[in-house]
Simulated assay, not measured.
Amino acid sequence: MIALGEPILVTGLTFGTGEFTADRSAATLVAFATTALLWRIYIHRAGALLADAMTATPRPGRIVVLTNYSHVIMVAGIITIAVGDELVIQHPLGHTHPAWILVILSGPALFLAGRATFEYAVFGRVSLPRALGALALVALTPAMRRVPPLAVATAAALILAGVAVADALRTRRFPAEPASPPVRRSWAGRGRKGPGL
C-alpha cells in the first residue's frame, strides 16, 4: 500500500513542474486513474484472507515465501509505472520510443503477475482476468509503436480497468470463497484444484 504512494507523488511533482496544458492534464488523469485501479485490484479479496490461508495449510512457510515474492514483483511493477507516468506526463504526444513502450506496459504487467502470484498463495489458483490482462499488455507492445505515449498509457489503464470490472462481476456472481492455499500434488495426480478464475 505504501508503494502506491510513489506513482501519486511522481505524478503530482511531474505535473506541477511543467506547463498546465490539456495533453499534460489528460496524462495526469490517466496516471491517477491507473493508481486507483492498482489499489482496487490489490485489495480485492485475497489480502483479507491471507491470515486464514496461513492457518489452513500445514506449510505456512511456503505461503510466506510466495507472498513475499509476489509483493516484490508488485512493488517493482508500481515503481516501473511511476517511471512511465513521469515519461507520459512530460511527453504526452509525439513519437513513443520503444523503451518507453516497454516501461509503460511492463509496469502494469508486472503488477498483475505479482498479484496473480499473491492470489495463488491464498486460493491455490490464478485469476484468469489477471493472467489475460498481463498477456494483453505484452501482446499490445508491438502495436503501440505508432501511437503517442498518452495512448499507450491509456491502453494500459483500460486493461487494468477490465481486470477491475471482472473482479467486481465475479464478486456479484459468487459468494466470498474461503482461503484454500495450494496443496502439493502427489505423483498420482491427487490434490486440490481451484476454480479457474
Results as ranks from 00 to 15, higher is better:
Phe123Glu: 10
Leu93His: 10
Ile41Asp: 00
Leu128Cys: 02
Leu9Glu: 04
Arg145Ala: 15
Ala33Trp: 00
Pro182Lys: 11
Ala51Arg: 14
Met1Arg: 06
Pro178His: 10
Arg125Phe: 07
Thr35Gly: 02
Arg146Trp: 12
Ile8Thr: 02
Ala134Gln: 12
Ala53Lys: 12
Ser186Glu: 13
Gly84Thr: 07
Met144Phe: 03
Arg59Tyr: 14
Leu105Glu: 08
Gly194Asn: 09
Ala82Tyr: 05
Val165Ile: 14
Val65Gln: 07
Ile43Tyr: 04
His95Ile: 08
Gly162His: 06
Val88Trp: 02
Met74Asn: 06
Ile104Ser: 03
Thr117Cys: 05
Val75Gly: 05
Arg62Asn: 15
Ala113Phe: 07
Val10Phe: 08
Ala33Cys: 04
Arg192Ala: 12
Gly47Phe: 07
Ala188Asn: 14
Ala46Leu: 11
His44Gln: 11
Val147Pro: 01
Val64Ala: 14
Arg192Ser: 13
Ala36Ser: 00
Ala161Phe: 00
Leu50Cys: 09
Gly114Pro: 02
Val138Lys: 07
Arg145Asn: 08
Gly16Leu: 15
Leu128Gly: 10
Leu160Arg: 01
Asp23Thr: 15
Leu132Gln: 10
Leu112Thr: 03
Ala22Arg: 11
Gly61Leu: 11
Ala31Asp: 02
Pro98Gln: 08
Met144Ile: 02
Thr17Val: 15
Pro92Glu: 05
Arg190Tyr: 03
Asn68Val: 13
Ala3Gln: 10
Gly162Leu: 02
Arg115Ile: 01
Glu177Arg: 15
Val126Phe: 13
Asp85Gln: 11
His44Pro: 08
Leu87Pro: 12
Gly191Trp: 09
Ala99Glu: 11
Ala143Val: 08
Gly5His: 01
Arg59Asp: 15
Gly16Gln: 10
Ala157Lys: 04
Thr21Phe: 08
Ala51Gln: 13
Ala139Leu: 15
Val165Arg: 05
Val64Pro: 02
Ala155His: 04
Leu50Phe: 07
Ala48Gly: 06
Ile2Phe: 13
Gly94Asp: 13
Val165Trp: 06
Val126Gly: 11
Arg62Ser: 14
Ala27Asn: 08
His97Leu: 11
Pro178Trp: 04
Ala153His: 06
Arg115Gln: 12
Ala36Tyr: 05
Thr28Tyr: 13
Gly191Cys: 12
Leu150Ile: 13
His44Met: 13
Ile104Glu: 02
Ser180Trp: 08
Ala3Leu: 06
Asp167Ala: 03
Gly18Ile: 10
Ala136Glu: 11
Phe111Ser: 02
Glu177Ile: 15
Gly61Ala: 12
Leu160Glu: 09
Leu29Ala: 09
Phe174Cys: 10
Val163His: 01
Glu177Asn: 09
Leu13Ser: 02
Ser25Asp: 07
Val138Trp: 04
Ala36Arg: 00
Thr154Gly: 01
Ala116Asn: 08
Ala166Arg: 11
Pro98Cys: 04
Val65Gly: 09
Trp39Asn: 02
Val183Gly: 12
Val163Tyr: 08
Met144Ala: 14
Arg125Ile: 06
Ile104Phe: 04
Ala109Leu: 03
Glu119His: 14
Leu66Ala: 14
Ala157Ile: 01
Pro149Phe: 06
Arg59Ile: 12
Pro175Lys: 15
Pro98Met: 06
Thr141Met: 12
Ala82Ile: 02
Leu50Glu: 15
